[in-house]
Design a protein around this nucleic acid. Structure first.
Lengths: 252, 252
DNA sequence: GGGTCATTTTGGTCAGACCATTTTGGTCTG
DNA sequence: CAGACCAAAATGGTCTGACCAAAATGACCC
């Protein structure tokens, strides 16, 4: 029986990647408890109809996410608190079924880091660089409709984050940003978008930049995202999760 | 020729782990440029005298660190800015030879995140929890000698960070902390330790906690680590690196 | 219940093979 | 000379079947 001819799937992903994504989601959804072992490599190879090598590669990925620990005798599940930041993306993708509060948690952390980023950048920026930051903030067209403004706010935020990074060049912040999926933050909104609040933030940011006041910039950013986080927390309390769906059916 | 009998090294690490660490450090030290390809799996298997499977596992680890991109035709080096936060630990370990400024960058980011952590925790803490935080801050014995106080400061900082996490329970912050190697931060000091500055920080923190003032707590923490970062920056400018050692020998 | 030991199961690694995709080098044309 | 095209070589992706080290399991005894 020669080796299989299916190297990559239609989406360009390898079999090992598909498998690690499936296992990752099962783990994040709580199918296995911390300390428990995954099924053996041989069993998983049978389940997914692949060679054991592909399973090993899939499990390698999970190990680097920090959600499993691989040792002879079996692959054990780690507590989620011991995972690496790279697990945040998949967690967010599972929002409604996994740990919904991660969204509001992310927003407040993002705000603090964006504030820091602004502070560091303003401490170093030339007048030209400040002008460029102000130009980015002015990109929103106030006459467009609400959903367009939402999209524009997201795009402005992304461009602003990027420009700050280009000024302060703090690698640690950049690495954190890579893990935070900041492109998602602009999408983490209450059901009713708040163009007024978003526009007020951009105005306040512009004022702080014109005044070259890094602490002021950090403060208006932090405050905005703290407020957003509080709103999201209220919504998260209402979201049914896998865990509380099971709890409810156990009591019915 | 049967499979090798050497499964793990004396330190409990697999061959694949050893190899990925070697390749990781070579990459971080700039031996390959972004966009270049690593040697092929087959060539690396020859170089390290192992089976190609072990090389594939080693490279899988590098891919999850975000420092390489694996595709048919070769494994290419990513720019460091696209790496994951997990690369920070190894970068710090290479401090004197890699990118020395990452230390001061880490310190300022750590300070901002610790400040946020303090703010979030104080927003939620019971009186008992605040008392526990104060107790941790009082652990330093002012009559002990300077190097003991340094060790105590580090230990207090760690316990404090942990206690804050236990109060606010923000998973995103926890995941970032996992990647920041925060246990290293207390060791990132100028050559002359500053027990006076450290003790002043602990005093200021205690005052803010007693006043239950989260913004005050965040501010004293941030300021302390900003100052430390500035000091470290001055020292970093004097450290010879691989890159500027090569530059100098090219001009001699 | 705990301790010991043999057996089984698990992960770690190997050689050799074949397929899909990318890279390289050669040739031709304008 | 530059650009296009093509075949061959090289690369990663995956397979089968194998063996070894370390951990897990179950039987037995006290």
């Amino acid at each position: 029986m020669p080796p299989s001819s299916a190297t990559t799937s239609a989406s360009g992903k390898t079999r090992a990647e598909d498998i690690s994504n499936i296992l990752r989601d099962e783990i994040l959804l709580g199918q296995y408890r911390a300390g428990e072992r995954l099924p053996s490599e041989r069993d998983l190879a049978g389940r997914f109809q692949v060679n054991r090598g592909a399973i090993r590669e899939a499990i390698k990925t999970l190990a680097e996410l920090g959600i499993v620990q691989v040792q002879p005798g079996g692959v054990r599940i780690n507590p989620l608190e011991q995972a690496s930041l790279s697990v945040l993306g998949p967690l967010l993708d599972l929002k409604a079924e996994g740990r919904p509060e991660v969204v509001s948690e992310l927003v407040v952390v993002f705000g603090a880091l964006l504030g820091l980023s602004g502070r560091l950048a303003l401490a170093q920026a030339t007048a030209d660089q400040r002008a460029e930051l102000l130009q980015i903030l002015e990109r929103i067209d106030p006459t467009s409709d609400v959903s367009d403004q939402d999209e524009q706010f997201r795009s402005v935020l992304e461009a602003f984050v990027k420009a700050l990074g280009g000024i302060h060049n703090n690698l640690v912040l950049r690495l954190i940003r890579n893990g935070l999926r900041t492109q998602m933050v602009g999408r983490l909104k209450p059901k009713q978008p708040s163009p007024v609040t978003d526009r007020q933030l951009l105005k306040d940011m512009a004022i702080a930049i014109e005044a070259n006041n890094g602490n002021q910039l950090a403060m208006v950013i932090s405050r905005h995202f703290d407020d957003l986080s509080v709103k999201l927390s209220a919504i998260e309390a209402d979201i049914p999760t896998f865990a509380n769906r099971q709890r409810n059916s156990g009591h019915a």
